[in-house]
Structures are given as C-alpha cells and as structure tokens.
C-alpha cells in the first residue's frame, strides 16, 4: 500500500532538506520512493509543496486531493491551503509559525483565525507545536525542518530512530550534525 506524505511551507523555509531527509530514510529502508517538487518561480517566497510517496511500487509522482496520509506544514496558512489533499481523518503536523503572504501584508486579504481549530473541525488530526522555539532550543532556528521531521517520525514507528539519525548525518554538513540531531530528538519529544 502506497503511503503519501506532503511537506508544505513557504519558499526559503527549508522544506527541501526535509524532503531530502525523508527520501533518504525511505531509500535506506528499501521502499520504492518518489519525491516530487516544483523548482523555479515558486521559490521566491511563494507557497511550496513537496510530494513524497513510498511503498512497494509507486507510479504517480504527485499526491492528489484526498490522498495524503500526513501533511507536514512549516506554516499554519499552508496547512489550511493544502487541507483538501488530506485523506479524511488524516494527520497534520504543523509548525504554529505564521508568515503573512503579500496580499495579507498589503491589506488585500485576511489571515484566517483559529486555523488549528478549523482543521480539527474539518476532521483532521492536528499535532501543532512551536517548532521554531524547539529548533532555537536545539541551537539553531534553521533546524526547524529537522525538528518537524522528528515529530513526524513518531507517526511512522516502522522506521526506527537509528535509521533517521543515520540519514540526518548523511544529509547535513558535519558541523551542523549535532544541532540537527538535537532538534530531531526535541521535535520527537525525547
């Protein structure tokens, strides 16, 4: 059975490293994997999305409406934007950080209130936390992506912590290894 995970956020937030890490973990565990993202224009502070699909044999590289088992959101508004891709009753892991898009900054649109409550009302399971503070506690605000992946790892017990730690060591420069391993552990809640 193919599992579908979406990683969503704002261009520049480090979603690419998160998907790289997840891809590496899944490859180490012998799954067939497809990771799909769009480069270019959308990286200039726009909304960004990465699709990660894994299982015995994966065909389509994208995740469509109602197909995601998990959405990992780096920002609250992006969780709301991609909600329609979630399976009914699926899991959202969200960073409570809010980044105003230009239409909100300029006053042309409003940032929705009480997003977590509304996601829950729509039937989603929501695990929202201040991963930015967790990353800062680990030693670097830039490690927010790894902190989020730490939380995500709790929802996939079939992948052991050692595999994650090995993949992190392979994915980040050696001098940032310790801070990222710390962010992973704190994000995971250990």
């Amino acid at each position: 059975m193919t599992k579908n995970v979406m990683i969503v956020g704002v261009g520049g937030q480090g979603t690419l490293l998160a998907s790289k890490l997840l891809g590496r973990v899944l490859t180490l565990r012998g799954y067939d994997v497809k990771v799909s993202e769009v480069h270019g224009m959308s990286q200039r502070g726009g909304s960004v999305v990465t699709y990660v699909r894994f299982g015995e044999k994966v065909s389509s590289p994208v995740i469509d409406k109602g197909e995601a088992d998990v959405i990992i959101s780096f920002e609250m508004l992006e969780a709301a934007r991609w909600l329609d891709c979630l399976k009914p009753g699926g899991q959202i892991i969200a960073n409570t950080q809010q980044i105003n898009p230009m239409p909100v900054v300029s006053g042309a649109a409003e940032y929705p209130e009480k997003i977590t409550e509304k996601l829950k009302a729509a039937g989603a399971k929501v695990d929202a936390d201040d991963f930015l503070s967790i990353a800062v506690e680990a030693g670097s605000a830039l490690a927010v992506n790894i902190a989020l992946m730490g939380r995500f790892s709790r929802y996939f017990p079939e992948i052991d912590v050692e595999t994650w730690r090995e993949a992190i060591a392979q994915s980040v420069p050696p001098k940032f290894k310790d801070v990222n391993l710390r962010a992973f552990a704190l994000g995971r809640g250990e």
Binding site: D84, L86, P88, P101, M102, P112
Partner: peptide, 14 residues
Amino acid sequence: SVSFEDPVPPRPPV
C-alpha cells in the same frame, strides 16, 4: 476530500 472553511489568501512569489 474536505476544503478549509475560510478563504485561503494566495501566497504569490515576491
């Protein structure tokens, strides 16, 4: 699938 109940402001590249 379910959509978010409020309008979601677009996030264009800047």
